[in-house]
Computed example of a mutant assay.
Amino acid sequence: MEIPGDRRLAAAVVMDEQGRLLLVRRSERERFLPRVWGVPCGKLEPGESPGDGALRELKEETGLLGEVVCKVGESSFVSDYRGHEVKNWQDNFLVRPLTRHVTLPEPDQAYAWLAPSRLTTVDIDAYNLDIVRQALTNS
């Protein structure tokens, strides 16, 4: 069994022209944080830049096209891979949407465009809340 080394990830904090943020609720079938609200993010492909990865994850998870405005920060967490600790390093980007029609991959998912003052009206975890706060502070 091959144990992965550090993993690189990227997140897209999408903000529209009204200053609303896009949050997506994960499917109940997800192994990691089912039904929790957060920003589109995921692992980078081999050779992929973090900015390109954030835009690819945005497209895969919401159907939206976007453009990176700026990098707003970094996050890290430890996860378990078959009994082994893996360190995850994530680059976080503020993204401007270029399209509007959100298409979610799973029927039990949901999305919401929320003003920053309304973020805590959904079940967002502290990790995703910190990513959003990075975007609000550093954009």
Rank of each mutant, 00 (worst) to 15 (best):
I3E: 00
P4Q: 02
G5A: 11
R8L: 11
L9V: 03
L9D: 00
L9M: 08
A10T: 02
V13P: 00
V14A: 01
V14N: 00
D16T: 07
Q18E: 03
G19Y: 02
G19D: 04
R20A: 00
L22S: 01
V24R: 00
R29C: 04
R29Y: 09
P34A: 04
P34K: 01
R35Y: 06
V36H: 01
G38T: 03
G38F: 06
P40V: 08
C41R: 08
G42V: 09
G42I: 09
S49M: 12
G51N: 09
G53P: 08
A54Q: 05
L55T: 08
L58G: 02
E61M: 10
G63C: 12
L65Y: 11
G66A: 12
G66S: 08
E67K: 15
K71N: 07
S75Y: 12
R82M: 10
R82E: 03
V86M: 08
K87W: 13
N88K: 13
W89M: 07
W89T: 01
D91L: 05
R96K: 15
T99N: 05
R100Q: 10
V102E: 03
V102P: 04
T103C: 14
T103L: 15
L104Q: 02
P105D: 06
P105Y: 12
A110T: 08
Y111A: 07
A112D: 06
A112F: 13
W113V: 05
S117M: 14
R118A: 14
D123K: 01
A126Y: 15
A126Q: 14
A126S: 13
D130H: 15
